[in-house]
Amino acid sequence: MMDTGMTPKASDTSTLPPIKPAAESEPLCARIEGFSFFYSNGMQAIKNVDMPILDRKVTAIIGPSGCGKSTLLRSLNRMHDLYPGNRYEGRVILEQDGENLIGPEADPVVVRLRVGMVFQKPNPFPKSIFENVAAGLRVRGIKNRAVIEEAVETALKRAAIWDEVKDKLHGSANDLSGGQQQRLCIARALAPNPEILLLDEPTSALDPIATAKVEDLIQDLAETVTVVIVTHNMQQAARISHRTAFMYLGQLIEFGETSQIFTSPKHPSTESYITGRYG
């Protein structure tokens, strides 16, 4: 981030209380309520976050490194359950059926069946392109070849990579470029039709051209699936999201329409961040 050389007013502004998100008029996919997260070493990474997630829209989470944005995202499909001793508090309610994703009765594996995820670094499996996209279907016990083939093609088209790979579906996924690999990973997450797609800084390892392609893709995706994206890149959030959440030190400082957050932030911390005073 740019350093303007000015002394940040962060020290005094951060003491101001966060602004609670206003009531949403648009249909919701999920609601995060009173959510806190503790790592196994006792560190509280997220403090009492309330946040709506709009149905079939792009919600971006921004904030400086270590603000808890990735931690929040990874909570939504229970990635933290892979490591012992982590603790969730509060609720993440899916509007459709009222299921609490982080409730004690929710099976993390089932949560991940409903909520797909794409990671920072492209992580294709060391298998063919086809098998990568089919992986989520096989996990769901789908064996019908025709169904799988159709779903793979649909997913690759939705991920805007079909034209590039349709002739080498059975070639190794590791032979693709970084940008293609990341779109392949998006296709992999899309293939089983998740209700929410989580993107954890999906372009941080990509060059600008590949980034542009992935950004276009994300905007198209929002017509059919709810997208939550964590990004370090404010311009990216401004370009592609409908709502933006600004997090700082584990708190949700401000949430609102993207244009509002970037043009007239209400909280001084948000303003400091988007004007590049810290990051």
């Binding site: 089932v110 769901r140 789908i142 293939a191 039709n193």
Partner: peptide
Amino acid sequence: MTNSAIPTGSELIKSGFVKRRRM
């Protein structure tokens, strides 16, 4: 766009697939 042949998470629970897999 979505393919009805692909069961959603809640359908997988209802069909007993999740239970079988857990077993």
